[in-house]
Design a protein around this nucleic acid. Sequence first.
DNA 1: TTTCCTTGGGAACGCCAATGCGCATCGCTC
DNA 2: GAGCGATGCGCATTGGCGTTCCCAAGGAAA
Lengths: 146, 146
Amino acid sequence: MDAIDRKILAQLVNDSALTSEQLGARVGLSPSAAHRRVKALEEDGLILGYRARLSSAAQGNPSTVFVSVTLVDQRQATMMAFEAALARTTQVREAHLMSGESDYLIKVLVRADDSYERVHREILSALPGVHRLVTQFTIRTLAAGD
Amino acid sequence: MDAIDRKILAQLVNDSALTSEQLGARVGLSPSAAHRRVKALEEDGLILGYRARLSSAAQGNPSTVFVSVTLVDQRQATMMAFEAALARTTQVREAHLMSGESDYLIKVLVRADDSYERVHREILSALPGVHRLVTQFTIRTLAAGD
DNA sequence: TTTCCTTGGGAACGCCAATGCGCATCGCTC
DNA sequence: GAGCGATGCGCATTGGCGTTCCCAAGGAAA
C-alpha cells in the first residue's frame, strides 16, 4: 500500500470500468504494471468486488426514510433475531447499532410505487423484538453514498 | 424493462465483473443477448457506472457517525452554500435534507487514524451556515449499503 | 562487489466484448 | 386469416484488451 495503490483505489471507486491502459495513464504506470497492482489489491482483499451503480429510476425512484428502532430488550438473542430478519428484507439498505436513545438506526428505501405506510406496517413492525419505531423522512438526498 | 432486465440489474449490482457468458447463464440468455441488454441498460441511463467496493481496511477502518445538522436559517443561499461545502468534504458519505427537527442528516466516516473530535472541530463546525450539530455514534454497522 | 528481491516496461497469447447476420416470434394492419 | 414490420433471440466472427510471460533496472542485504 503506497501512494500509487491509493491512487488506483481512488480511481476504481469512481469508475471500475477503466481499462488497464487508462488506469495506468492516470496513476503514472504502464498498463501491465497497473493491472498487476489491481490484481494484488484484489488478492489482498482490499478490493472486495465490483458492482454496478443504478439510476434512481432503475431502483423504482425510491424515497429514503431513516428509522430509529428500539427493541423490547437488549438480550443477545433478541438482537440476533432482529438482525437476521433485517438481512432478509430488501428495503433496508443500511443498519447501524447505535449508542444513545434508540438501539438501531436503519435506512429504508421505499419505492415510488410502494407506500411507507405499507412498509411500516407489514415489514418494519413485523420485525422480531421491535418495541418502538421513530421515523424520519427525507425531503431530498444529496449524496447517496452508494 | 422486463423481468430479464431486472434480473440482470440485480446480478450486476452484486457483481459487475461477471462475463457476458456468466451473466447470460444466470438470467437464461445467450452471452450476446445478455451483452446487448447490458449495453442498452447503460445507454438508457439505468446503469450509471461501475465502481469498486473497498474493504474496511482500504478505507482506513473507519467508524460511522451520524450527525443531525441545523442551519442558522433556511434561506436558499444558506442551504446552497452548505451543500456545496459538503460536496467538497471527503468524510461525508451521505447527506439528506430532512423533515422534522433538524435540517440535514449526514453520515460521516472517520478513519481509525483520525479522531472525531478533530473532524467535528475542523470539518463539520467549519461548514458554512451551521447552527447546531447533534452527533449519534454507531457501535457497529451491519449493512453498509455501499 | 555480488546476489537476491522487488517492481517496472514490453510483447505474445488467449479470451471476451462487440457486432453483423439470419431467423423466430409477436403484434398490427388490411 | 394472411401479410408485414418490429423486436429480440442465438450463432459466428473479429478485434481489442485482459492476462501472463520474460527481461531489465533499482535497492537492500550479505
